[in-house]
Nucleic acid binder design. Structure first.
Ligand code: ADP
Length: 410
DNA sequence: TCTCCACTGGAATTAAAGGCAG
DNA sequence: CTGCCTTTAATTCCAGTGGAGA
């Protein structure tokens, strides 16, 4: 083989076979260990569709990586195999990505539009109008539509349950077609946000996906690694380690598979012929840092300013601070960067968002006479994150910034 | 019990993007 | 083409609420 500048990076000959796709989250294996019950239950519910009747609506609960999406997709594939006439159609919608009523209706309707020129635009129309177009499209044929709303809690907490109310009674407006809803939620308590009528209609059937324990994760990993690697690449001891680590993370199978994939990539890059426990540990660190770095890169500038304020204060020796302290530093950073200064009300919300992303810790605390406020603390390593933040061109003017000594810091 | 410093919920505003009727 | 309307995201404005130390 010719010498090329890419040589060191492409790994001229693979040390071991690895089928990356098999380890990706989008891959649906032909067997889902430890989800037999759920598969059965869902199959039973949806089998109705094959007889031409509308299946019950289903509400599925479970933390991330408990196999909810995998089970739904699996049944979708099975159903398609049996349904020759294509009278049953699946529509999958992730409400974390499409999180507005208009967006959901528009996207669903567009699945049924083949003619590009007739696609519904992403803005401009009224929501009612889009709903009407959706109804028309659906009713063009006799069919059963199974609408899967993943992360359904996201759209409810953000926009209320009006959209769900509308979708649940869409069958009243349809004559030929019938629609069933499958809602998938991470949050067991999200039904508290729902109108009781919406709640009962949506949850004709309820399913709960418990987190996997280490043993179950091990089985899942073993099944996948059999497919993805040659024998011996991923030893049982390595798989148990990964399973144990993922079990600590609320039994997240996605985490486990990510760990396995990244470990394998590290092993491959080091030109070793098997995955070692060291690779796993390194993979864990890499994934953790990568996730945080990605989250920060995609933050809007204002959030970056708030985060930088928190980090700078922390660096200056005040690990824990109040909202007021953050806001003080934030205002100064805005001045130096020429960015507009948002109100403290808004900054409070931005801090809460950073907390949700796990980038900072924030909890409300009362200091008696000192008032009641959030106690804020950075949750990310100062140096690395500062480097990432400072790559933002808007933050260029404050590279190397140190806050003025603030006596009020806790 | 008083009071401090924000938290927090909600309404209102603003600006962007874009369809549609005249 | 113009003016008007819709949705959405981000933000401001307003004001009631509250935990606990002095
Ligand atoms: N029982 C299982 N057997 C094999 N793979 C599984 C199983 N449960 C989950 N997975 C895999 O774990 C990953 C995450 O699962 P997913 O269904 O997307 O989780 P959720 O939707 O609950 O967040 C996917 O790659 C999926 O294939």
């Amino acid at each position: 083989m010719e010498e090329s500048i890419f040589q060191p990076y492409i790994g001229s000959r693979p040390i071991f076979k690895m089928d990356r796709d098999i380890l990706r989250p989008s891959f649906v294996p032909d067997r889902l260990p430890h989800r037999e019950e759920q598969l059965d239950q869902l199959a039973q519910i949806l089998a109705t569709a094959l007889r031409g009747d509308r299946p019950s609506n289903v509400l599925i609960f479970g933390k991330t990586g408990t196999g909810k999406t995998a089970v739904v997709k699996y049944i979708e594939n099975e159903l398609k195999k049996l349904d020759g006439g294509r009278a049953v159609q699946y529509v999958y919608m992730n409400c974390e990505i499409v999180d507005t009523p208009y967006g959901v209706l528009q996207n669903v309707a567009n699945r049924f539009v083949e003619n590009l020129s007739q696609r519904i635009p992403f803005t401009g129309l009224s929501t009612d109008r889009v709903y009407q177009m959706l109804v028309e499209k659906l009713d063009e044929e006799k069919r059963i539509v199974i609408l899967v709303l993943d992360e359904i809690d996201k759209i409810v907490t953000k926009n209320g349950d009006d959209l769900l109310y509308q979708l649940l009674k869409i069958n009243d407006d349809l004559t030929k077609a019938k629609v069933s809803l499958i809602g998938i939620s991470n949050d067991l308590k999200f039904t508290e946000w729902l109108d009781p009528r919406v709640k009962s209609r949506l949850s004709d059937e309820k399913m709960v996906f418990p987190p996997y324990n280490a043993g179950e994760l091990f089985d899942i990993l073993q099944q996948r690694s059999h497919k993805a690697f040659d024998n011996g690449v991923a030893a049982e001891s390595v798989l148990s380690l990964i399973a144990a680590l993922a079990a600590q993370e609320h039994g997240d199978a996605r985490r486990a598979l990510d760990l396995l994939r990244v470990s394998a990539e590290l092993a491959e890059r080091a030109a070793e012929d098997r995955i070692t426990e060291q690779h796993v540990q390194r993979a864990k660190n890499k994934i953790e840092l990568d996730t945080v770095v990605e989250a920060i890169k995609s933050l809007p500038t204002q959030s970056k300013l708030v985060l930088l304020s928190i980090i700078s204060n922390g660096e200056a020796g005040a690990d824990r601070m109040t909202t007021g302290d953050v806001y003080g530093t934030y205002k100064e950073l805005c001045r130096k960067t020429g960015m507009p200064v948002l109100t403290q009300r808004r900054v409070t919300d931005l801090i809460s968002e950073l907390d949700m992303l796990g980038l900072v810790h924030a909890r409300v605390k009362s200091y008696g006479r000192g008032g009641r406020t959030k106690e804020v603390q950075s949750a990310v390593p100062f140096l690395e994150i500062k480097k990432v933040l400072e790559k933002d061109e808007f933050l260029a003017p404050v590279r190397g910034y140190r806050p003025k000594s603030q006596t009020t810091l806790i």
